[in-house]
Design a binder for these strands. Structure first.
Lengths: 170, 170
DNA sequence: AGTGAAAGATTTCAGGC
DNA sequence: GCCTGAAATCTTTCACT
Protein backbone atom coordinates (compact mmCIF):
# COMPACT_ATOMS: atom_id res chain seq x y z
CA UNK A 1 0.00 0.00 0.00
CA UNK A 2 1.85 2.99 -1.24
CA UNK A 3 -0.52 5.62 -2.40
CA UNK A 4 -3.90 4.42 -1.30
CA UNK A 5 -3.31 4.18 2.40
CA UNK A 6 -4.68 7.49 3.49
CA UNK A 7 -8.26 7.69 2.29
CA UNK A 8 -8.44 11.29 3.35
CA UNK A 9 -11.93 11.91 4.58
CA UNK A 10 -11.57 15.33 6.10
CA UNK A 11 -14.05 16.53 8.59
CA UNK A 12 -15.94 19.66 7.65
CA UNK A 13 -15.39 22.51 10.03
CA UNK A 14 -17.92 25.14 9.03
CA UNK A 15 -21.06 24.54 7.03
CA UNK A 16 -19.49 26.09 3.97
CA UNK A 17 -16.22 24.36 4.56
CA UNK A 18 -17.73 21.01 3.72
CA UNK A 19 -14.34 20.54 2.25
CA UNK A 20 -15.40 19.00 -0.99
CA UNK A 21 -14.20 15.75 0.37
CA UNK A 22 -14.59 12.97 -2.12
CA UNK A 23 -15.32 10.02 0.07
CA UNK A 24 -13.46 6.87 -0.85
CA UNK A 25 -11.19 8.68 -3.28
CA UNK A 26 -7.53 9.03 -2.48
CA UNK A 27 -5.30 11.81 -3.74
CA UNK A 28 -4.34 9.89 -6.88
CA UNK A 29 -7.95 9.28 -7.86
CA UNK A 30 -8.74 12.93 -7.36
CA UNK A 31 -5.74 13.98 -9.43
CA UNK A 32 -6.82 11.62 -12.19
CA UNK A 33 -10.34 13.03 -12.11
CA UNK A 34 -9.12 16.59 -12.33
CA UNK A 35 -6.89 15.81 -15.28
CA UNK A 36 -9.60 13.92 -17.13
CA UNK A 37 -12.21 16.60 -16.52
CA UNK A 38 -9.80 19.17 -17.95
CA UNK A 39 -8.68 17.00 -20.87
CA UNK A 40 -10.36 13.70 -21.52
CA UNK A 41 -8.06 12.85 -24.41
CA UNK A 42 -4.83 13.01 -22.49
CA UNK A 43 -2.75 9.91 -23.15
CA UNK A 44 -2.70 7.36 -20.36
CA UNK A 45 1.08 7.51 -20.41
CA UNK A 46 1.09 11.26 -19.88
CA UNK A 47 -1.63 11.01 -17.23
CA UNK A 48 0.49 8.40 -15.47
CA UNK A 49 3.45 10.78 -15.46
CA UNK A 50 1.39 13.59 -14.00
CA UNK A 51 -0.04 11.57 -11.14
CA UNK A 52 3.24 9.68 -10.68
CA UNK A 53 2.01 6.19 -11.27
CA UNK A 54 2.64 3.61 -13.97
CA UNK A 55 0.43 3.48 -17.03
CA UNK A 56 -1.24 0.18 -16.06
CA UNK A 57 -1.97 1.46 -12.57
CA UNK A 58 -3.63 4.57 -13.97
CA UNK A 59 -5.60 2.56 -16.51
CA UNK A 60 -6.89 0.34 -13.72
CA UNK A 61 -7.93 3.31 -11.59
CA UNK A 62 -9.69 5.00 -14.48
CA UNK A 63 -11.56 1.78 -15.18
CA UNK A 64 -12.70 1.62 -11.57
CA UNK A 65 -13.78 5.26 -11.60
CA UNK A 66 -15.89 4.41 -14.63
CA UNK A 67 -17.27 1.24 -13.08
CA UNK A 68 -18.21 3.06 -9.90
CA UNK A 69 -20.20 5.51 -11.99
CA UNK A 70 -18.09 8.48 -10.95
CA UNK A 71 -16.95 9.03 -14.51
CA UNK A 72 -20.05 8.72 -16.67
CA UNK A 73 -18.47 9.42 -20.02
CA UNK A 74 -16.25 11.62 -22.11
CA UNK A 75 -17.42 14.36 -24.42
CA UNK A 76 -16.10 16.89 -26.87
CA UNK A 77 -16.97 20.42 -25.85
CA UNK A 78 -18.19 22.46 -28.76
CA UNK A 79 -18.73 26.17 -29.19
CA UNK A 80 -22.30 26.77 -30.36
CA UNK A 81 -21.28 30.23 -31.65
CA UNK A 82 -18.98 28.65 -34.20
CA UNK A 83 -21.83 26.54 -35.42
CA UNK A 84 -23.89 29.61 -36.08
CA UNK A 85 -25.85 29.66 -32.84
CA UNK A 86 -25.10 33.18 -31.75
CA UNK A 87 -27.64 33.35 -28.93
CA UNK A 88 -27.95 31.16 -25.85
CA UNK A 89 -31.10 31.48 -23.83
CA UNK A 90 -32.24 30.17 -20.48
CA UNK A 91 -35.97 29.64 -20.54
CA UNK A 92 -37.94 29.16 -17.36
CA UNK A 93 -41.31 27.59 -17.95
CA UNK A 94 -44.37 26.79 -15.87
CA UNK A 95 -47.02 24.74 -17.64
CA UNK A 96 -50.68 25.58 -17.27
CA UNK A 97 -52.75 23.09 -15.26
CA UNK A 98 -53.11 19.84 -17.17
CA UNK A 99 -50.64 20.80 -19.88
CA UNK A 100 -47.49 19.49 -18.28
CA UNK A 101 -47.25 16.53 -20.66
CA UNK A 102 -47.74 18.72 -23.69
CA UNK A 103 -45.08 21.13 -22.57
CA UNK A 104 -42.62 18.30 -22.01
CA UNK A 105 -43.41 17.00 -25.47
CA UNK A 106 -42.84 20.44 -26.97
CA UNK A 107 -39.53 20.78 -25.16
CA UNK A 108 -38.36 17.38 -26.30
CA UNK A 109 -39.37 18.11 -29.87
CA UNK A 110 -37.37 21.33 -30.01
CA UNK A 111 -33.80 20.53 -30.98
CA UNK A 112 -32.52 23.99 -30.10
CA UNK A 113 -33.21 23.05 -26.48
CA UNK A 114 -30.09 21.11 -25.59
CA UNK A 115 -30.85 20.64 -21.93
CA UNK A 116 -33.81 20.97 -19.62
CA UNK A 117 -34.14 20.37 -15.91
CA UNK A 118 -37.27 19.85 -13.87
CA UNK A 119 -36.96 22.04 -10.81
CA UNK A 120 -38.72 22.88 -7.61
CA UNK A 121 -39.73 26.41 -6.79
CA UNK A 122 -41.87 28.82 -8.69
CA UNK A 123 -40.86 27.47 -12.09
CA UNK A 124 -41.21 23.92 -13.31
CA UNK A 125 -38.56 23.74 -16.01
CA UNK A 126 -35.37 25.53 -16.78
CA UNK A 127 -34.22 24.91 -20.32
CA UNK A 128 -31.10 25.92 -22.18
CA UNK A 129 -31.51 26.71 -25.87
CA UNK A 130 -28.99 27.72 -28.52
CA UNK A 131 -30.48 29.69 -31.40
CA UNK A 132 -29.19 31.38 -34.52
CA UNK A 133 -30.88 34.71 -33.99
CA UNK A 134 -33.69 36.53 -32.25
CA UNK A 135 -36.17 35.22 -34.76
CA UNK A 136 -35.31 31.67 -33.94
CA UNK A 137 -35.44 32.47 -30.24
CA UNK A 138 -38.95 33.75 -30.70
CA UNK A 139 -39.89 30.63 -32.63
CA UNK A 140 -38.58 28.40 -29.85
CA UNK A 141 -40.44 30.34 -27.17
CA UNK A 142 -43.62 30.34 -29.25
CA UNK A 143 -43.50 26.58 -29.23
CA UNK A 144 -43.82 26.54 -25.45
CA UNK A 145 -46.18 29.45 -24.99
CA UNK A 146 -49.36 27.49 -25.82
CA UNK A 147 -48.71 25.25 -22.83
CA UNK A 148 -47.91 27.72 -20.09
CA UNK A 149 -45.97 30.75 -18.94
CA UNK A 150 -42.34 31.27 -19.92
CA UNK A 151 -39.61 33.65 -18.90
CA UNK A 152 -36.51 34.00 -21.04
CA UNK A 153 -33.05 35.27 -20.17
CA UNK A 154 -30.38 35.72 -22.78
CA UNK A 155 -26.97 34.58 -21.61
CA UNK A 156 -24.57 37.49 -21.87
CA UNK A 157 -21.40 35.93 -20.57
CA UNK A 158 -20.08 33.20 -18.33
CA UNK A 159 -19.25 34.62 -14.93
CA UNK A 160 -17.94 31.23 -13.92
CA UNK A 161 -17.19 29.11 -16.99
CA UNK A 162 -17.53 25.48 -15.89
CA UNK A 163 -15.22 24.38 -13.14
CA UNK A 164 -16.54 20.99 -12.23
CA UNK A 165 -13.07 20.00 -11.12
CA UNK A 166 -13.52 22.12 -8.01
CA UNK A 167 -15.92 19.46 -6.79
CA UNK A 168 -13.11 16.95 -6.69
CA UNK A 169 -10.82 18.76 -4.31
CA UNK A 170 -7.21 17.92 -3.57
CA UNK B 1 -12.94 16.48 -53.95
CA UNK B 2 -14.88 13.53 -52.80
CA UNK B 3 -16.64 14.27 -49.57
CA UNK B 4 -16.26 17.98 -49.20
CA UNK B 5 -17.83 19.01 -52.45
CA UNK B 6 -21.36 19.55 -51.34
CA UNK B 7 -21.18 21.96 -48.46
CA UNK B 8 -24.84 21.50 -47.79
CA UNK B 9 -26.18 24.82 -46.68
CA UNK B 10 -29.88 24.13 -46.62
CA UNK B 11 -32.32 26.92 -46.70
CA UNK B 12 -34.57 27.23 -43.70
CA UNK B 13 -38.22 26.96 -44.49
CA UNK B 14 -40.04 27.96 -41.35
CA UNK B 15 -38.58 29.95 -38.48
CA UNK B 16 -38.34 26.86 -36.33
CA UNK B 17 -37.12 24.77 -39.19
CA UNK B 18 -33.82 26.60 -39.24
CA UNK B 19 -32.58 23.16 -40.04
CA UNK B 20 -29.65 23.24 -37.69
CA UNK B 21 -27.49 23.67 -40.68
CA UNK B 22 -23.87 23.84 -39.71
CA UNK B 23 -22.48 26.21 -42.27
CA UNK B 24 -19.25 25.08 -43.83
CA UNK B 25 -19.49 21.63 -42.31
CA UNK B 26 -20.06 18.69 -44.60
CA UNK B 27 -21.70 15.44 -43.60
CA UNK B 28 -18.41 13.87 -42.55
CA UNK B 29 -17.53 16.76 -40.25
CA UNK B 30 -20.95 16.59 -38.68
CA UNK B 31 -20.69 12.86 -38.17
CA UNK B 32 -17.29 13.32 -36.57
CA UNK B 33 -18.67 15.99 -34.26
CA UNK B 34 -21.57 13.81 -33.20
CA UNK B 35 -19.30 10.89 -32.44
CA UNK B 36 -16.85 13.01 -30.47
CA UNK B 37 -19.58 14.74 -28.48
CA UNK B 38 -20.95 11.34 -27.54
CA UNK B 39 -17.56 9.78 -26.82
CA UNK B 40 -14.45 11.90 -26.86
CA UNK B 41 -12.14 8.99 -26.18
CA UNK B 42 -13.08 6.96 -29.20
CA UNK B 43 -9.98 5.82 -31.07
CA UNK B 44 -9.22 7.66 -34.29
CA UNK B 45 -9.18 4.32 -36.08
CA UNK B 46 -12.67 3.46 -34.85
CA UNK B 47 -13.93 6.96 -35.62
CA UNK B 48 -12.52 6.59 -39.12
CA UNK B 49 -14.44 3.34 -39.57
CA UNK B 50 -17.70 4.91 -38.44
CA UNK B 51 -17.50 7.90 -40.74
CA UNK B 52 -16.02 5.80 -43.49
CA UNK B 53 -12.78 7.60 -44.00
CA UNK B 54 -9.16 6.70 -43.38
CA UNK B 55 -7.52 7.43 -40.06
CA UNK B 56 -5.29 10.22 -41.40
CA UNK B 57 -8.23 11.92 -43.08
CA UNK B 58 -10.21 11.87 -39.86
CA UNK B 59 -7.26 13.10 -37.83
CA UNK B 60 -6.84 16.01 -40.22
CA UNK B 61 -10.53 16.92 -40.03
CA UNK B 62 -10.54 16.76 -36.23
CA UNK B 63 -7.49 19.01 -36.13
CA UNK B 64 -9.25 21.55 -38.33
CA UNK B 65 -12.40 21.42 -36.21
CA UNK B 66 -10.21 22.21 -33.22
CA UNK B 67 -8.34 24.98 -35.04
CA UNK B 68 -11.56 26.56 -36.16
CA UNK B 69 -12.68 26.71 -32.56
CA UNK B 70 -15.67 24.48 -33.14
CA UNK B 71 -14.27 21.84 -30.81
CA UNK B 72 -13.02 23.71 -27.75
CA UNK B 73 -11.85 20.74 -25.73
CA UNK B 74 -12.60 17.33 -24.33
CA UNK B 75 -13.81 16.59 -20.86
CA UNK B 76 -14.72 13.69 -18.62
CA UNK B 77 -18.31 13.84 -17.47
CA UNK B 78 -18.67 13.08 -13.80
CA UNK B 79 -21.68 12.31 -11.65
CA UNK B 80 -21.76 14.74 -8.71
CA UNK B 81 -24.04 12.30 -6.82
CA UNK B 82 -21.31 9.71 -6.72
CA UNK B 83 -18.98 12.27 -5.24
CA UNK B 84 -21.39 12.89 -2.42
CA UNK B 85 -23.14 15.92 -3.85
CA UNK B 86 -26.69 14.74 -3.57
CA UNK B 87 -28.35 18.05 -4.35
CA UNK B 88 -28.03 20.24 -7.43
CA UNK B 89 -29.44 23.73 -7.22
CA UNK B 90 -30.04 26.49 -9.73
CA UNK B 91 -29.68 29.82 -8.01
CA UNK B 92 -30.95 33.00 -9.61
CA UNK B 93 -29.42 36.10 -8.11
CA UNK B 94 -29.87 39.85 -8.48
CA UNK B 95 -27.29 41.97 -6.68
CA UNK B 96 -28.35 45.05 -4.75
CA UNK B 97 -27.29 48.38 -6.27
CA UNK B 98 -23.54 48.79 -6.03
CA UNK B 99 -22.90 45.25 -4.82
CA UNK B 100 -22.47 43.58 -8.18
CA UNK B 101 -18.71 43.20 -7.74
CA UNK B 102 -19.10 41.72 -4.29
CA UNK B 103 -21.63 39.24 -5.46
CA UNK B 104 -19.40 38.14 -8.32
CA UNK B 105 -16.55 37.72 -5.85
CA UNK B 106 -18.75 35.65 -3.56
CA UNK B 107 -19.85 33.47 -6.47
CA UNK B 108 -16.29 32.91 -7.62
CA UNK B 109 -15.16 32.09 -4.11
CA UNK B 110 -17.79 29.40 -3.66
CA UNK B 111 -16.49 26.12 -5.08
CA UNK B 112 -19.87 24.43 -4.93
CA UNK B 113 -20.92 26.80 -7.71
CA UNK B 114 -19.58 25.03 -10.76
CA UNK B 115 -21.03 27.36 -13.35
CA UNK B 116 -22.60 30.80 -13.43
CA UNK B 117 -23.97 32.82 -16.31
CA UNK B 118 -24.66 36.51 -16.50
CA UNK B 119 -28.08 36.93 -18.03
CA UNK B 120 -30.48 39.56 -19.21
CA UNK B 121 -33.98 39.77 -17.83
CA UNK B 122 -35.17 40.16 -14.29
CA UNK B 123 -32.25 38.23 -12.82
CA UNK B 124 -28.59 39.01 -13.21
CA UNK B 125 -26.98 35.63 -12.60
CA UNK B 126 -28.02 32.05 -12.89
CA UNK B 127 -25.66 29.74 -11.05
CA UNK B 128 -25.48 25.98 -10.80
CA UNK B 129 -24.32 24.55 -7.50
CA UNK B 130 -23.75 20.99 -6.35
CA UNK B 131 -24.06 20.52 -2.58
CA UNK B 132 -23.90 17.61 -0.18
CA UNK B 133 -27.10 18.35 1.71
CA UNK B 134 -29.66 20.99 2.56
CA UNK B 135 -27.36 22.47 5.16
CA UNK B 136 -24.66 23.06 2.61
CA UNK B 137 -27.22 24.50 0.21
CA UNK B 138 -28.23 26.97 2.87
CA UNK B 139 -24.61 27.85 3.50
CA UNK B 140 -24.02 28.52 -0.20
CA UNK B 141 -27.11 30.70 -0.46
CA UNK B 142 -26.17 32.56 2.70
CA UNK B 143 -22.93 33.53 1.06
CA UNK B 144 -24.81 35.41 -1.65
CA UNK B 145 -27.63 36.82 0.41
CA UNK B 146 -25.65 39.77 1.83
CA UNK B 147 -25.19 41.10 -1.70
CA UNK B 148 -28.67 40.85 -3.13
CA UNK B 149 -31.78 38.82 -3.70
CA UNK B 150 -31.63 35.13 -4.57
CA UNK B 151 -34.09 32.53 -5.72
CA UNK B 152 -33.21 28.85 -5.54
CA UNK B 153 -34.63 25.89 -7.39
CA UNK B 154 -33.59 22.36 -6.58
CA UNK B 155 -33.08 20.24 -9.68
CA UNK B 156 -35.38 17.25 -9.46
CA UNK B 157 -34.60 15.50 -12.72
CA UNK B 158 -33.32 16.06 -16.21
CA UNK B 159 -36.24 16.37 -18.60
CA UNK B 160 -33.77 16.64 -21.46
CA UNK B 161 -30.38 15.29 -20.40
CA UNK B 162 -27.79 17.07 -22.57
CA UNK B 163 -28.17 16.56 -26.26
CA UNK B 164 -25.74 19.05 -27.70
CA UNK B 165 -25.31 16.78 -30.70
CA UNK B 166 -28.72 17.88 -31.92
CA UNK B 167 -27.15 21.20 -32.77
CA UNK B 168 -24.93 19.53 -35.27
CA UNK B 169 -27.62 18.01 -37.45
CA UNK B 170 -27.14 15.42 -40.17
C1' DA C 1 -8.33 16.32 -49.91
C1' DG C 2 -7.74 11.43 -49.36
C1' DT C 3 -5.23 6.77 -49.43
C1' DG C 4 -1.95 3.27 -47.99
C1' DA C 5 2.11 1.77 -45.66
C1' DA C 6 5.92 2.42 -42.29
C1' DA C 7 7.80 4.40 -37.99
C1' DG C 8 6.89 5.87 -33.43
C1' DA C 9 3.79 5.86 -29.23
C1' DT C 10 0.44 4.00 -26.47
C1' DT C 11 -2.40 0.67 -24.33
C1' DT C 12 -2.91 -3.95 -22.71
C1' DC C 13 -1.48 -8.29 -20.83
C1' DA C 14 1.98 -11.23 -18.21
C1' DG C 15 4.37 -12.39 -14.26
C1' DG C 16 6.37 -10.86 -9.87
C1' DC C 17 6.52 -8.04 -5.54
C1' DG D 1 -2.61 -2.72 -5.44
C1' DC D 2 1.38 -1.50 -8.12
C1' DC D 3 5.53 -2.22 -11.11
C1' DT D 4 8.40 -3.84 -15.15
C1' DG D 5 8.66 -5.64 -19.75
C1' DA D 6 6.69 -7.58 -24.02
C1' DA D 7 2.83 -8.00 -27.49
C1' DA D 8 -1.01 -5.83 -29.84
C1' DT D 9 -3.09 -1.70 -31.26
C1' DC D 10 -3.34 2.91 -32.39
C1' DT D 11 -1.53 7.40 -34.13
C1' DT D 12 1.27 9.99 -37.04
C1' DT D 13 4.11 10.92 -40.90
C1' DC D 14 5.30 10.57 -45.68
C1' DA D 15 5.07 9.50 -50.53
C1' DC D 16 1.58 9.20 -54.06
C1' DT D 17 -2.97 9.92 -56.44
Amino acid sequence: MRNGGNSTIMKAKSPIDHRIETSELDAADRAILRELIADARIARAELARRVRLSAPAVAERVRRLEDRGIITGYGARIDPRRLGYSLSVLIRARPSPGLMKDMVAAIEATPQIVKCDRVSGEDCFIALAHVRDVGEMEAVIDRLVPFGATNSSIIQSATVPERTWDLVGR
